[in-house]
Simulated scan of single mutants.
Amino acid sequence: MYSNRIYQMAVHLVLIMMGIAAVFPFILLISASLTEEQAIIRDGYRLLPAQFSFDAYVYLFNQYSLILRSYGITTFITVVGTIIGLLITTLVAYPLSRNVLPFRSFLSFFVFFTLLFNGGLVPMYLVYTDLFHLKDTIWSLIIPNLLTNGFYILLMRSFFSTSIPGEVVESAYVDGANEWVIYCKIVLPLALPSLATIGLMLMISYWNDWFNGLIFINDGSLYSIQNLLNRMLSDVQYLQQNSLSGQTAVVSSVPLGSVRMAIAVIGVLPLIATYPFFQKFFAKGLTIGAVKG
């Protein structure tokens, strides 16, 4: 009994230390974004700001209309991309989990093959711009990520194969249900834990995506929040490196160090704010799914 309590205390201590290690960088990030620029240069980054300053956030929110529009675009591609991604993932994974599917092994290998090899950046760019004409469209921020879900498909297929009882599917057949009814009313409700996990990963990948916007978007009105903040940071760096003598005082007043940190905070804060609500759904999904009789 005593040894068991020691073990539990050790596990709790390790988990607490891991939690602190995970939270500490974000606290440092917020602190640096609220620190006066000269204090960062003089004292470096600290856990608590040496001199409080909101200059970085004032600089960013002077362009609030651009930021709000980019937030809207990012929210749209995240919601739509996650929903479509989950739909495609389950529609491909469920048939692959059924033993009655013809060429099941070949199709599974084809999905796995996409994890090992791809056509490269140039062919991808040519396909989406010259063949599908997606350049400077909102869909160029959604569709490319939909075609890189091989890992999620295999993960979901494994869940369907191991966690969906065959007796449930067979009883549904006996009751006269077709494949669509089984998929919509039996398989998806039982797969809520896996859907919540994959949905969270898709949501994070869409929210943090900046590469597709970099290569497919030239229209500033279609910038996601990551692309906009990256562009703002690049503009500040360019001005500091190439400013004329008369502009040096103005450009040097821009708090570049704290602006970097404020950009990171603005980019990640919505995910942190919405994650607890998603976590509730995820925890609820863990309690659903069992053979009832």
Rank of each mutant, 00 (worst) to 15 (best):
224 S>T: 12
291 V>E: 14
159 F>G: 02
26 F>W: 00
39 A>S: 07
278 F>P: 02
197 T>F: 15
254 V>M: 10
283 A>I: 10
17 M>A: 13
25 P>N: 01
183 Y>W: 12
239 L>Q: 12
66 L>G: 05
9 M>E: 15
41 I>H: 14
280 K>A: 02
179 E>G: 00
170 E>N: 13
54 F>T: 13
106 F>R: 03
52 F>L: 12
112 F>Q: 10
98 R>P: 11
148 T>W: 07
286 L>S: 00
287 T>K: 15
248 T>E: 12
80 V>K: 01
200 L>K: 04
254 V>R: 07
5 R>Q: 08
229 L>G: 07
99 N>F: 10
51 Q>V: 01
155 L>K: 07
153 I>P: 00
63 Q>P: 14
59 Y>R: 01
209 D>P: 12
97 S>W: 00
247 Q>W: 13
269 L>A: 05
274 T>F: 12
27 I>G: 08
7 Y>N: 13
134 L>A: 09
253 S>P: 06
189 P>N: 02
244 L>A: 15
113 F>W: 06
172 A>V: 06
96 L>K: 01
115 L>G: 15
202 L>C: 07
160 F>W: 09
123 P>R: 03
225 I>E: 05
118 N>T: 07
167 E>R: 10
11 V>D: 11
62 N>D: 11
20 I>A: 02
205 S>F: 14
202 L>Q: 15
15 L>T: 09
260 R>M: 13
90 T>N: 14
9 M>N: 15
16 I>K: 06
191 A>V: 01
256 L>A: 05
169 V>F: 11
268 V>A: 14
5 R>S: 09
93 A>S: 08
63 Q>C: 10
74 T>P: 12
128 Y>I: 00
223 Y>Q: 07
39 A>T: 06
221 S>A: 08
284 K>I: 05
7 Y>A: 13
205 S>E: 08
93 A>F: 00
25 P>D: 01
151 F>I: 11
109 F>T: 00
19 G>Y: 01
159 F>C: 00
227 N>D: 03
54 F>D: 12
171 S>W: 04
135 K>N: 03
280 K>W: 00
24 F>R: 09
261 M>G: 08
136 D>T: 00
65 S>R: 15
30 I>P: 09
184 C>G: 12
88 I>Q: 10
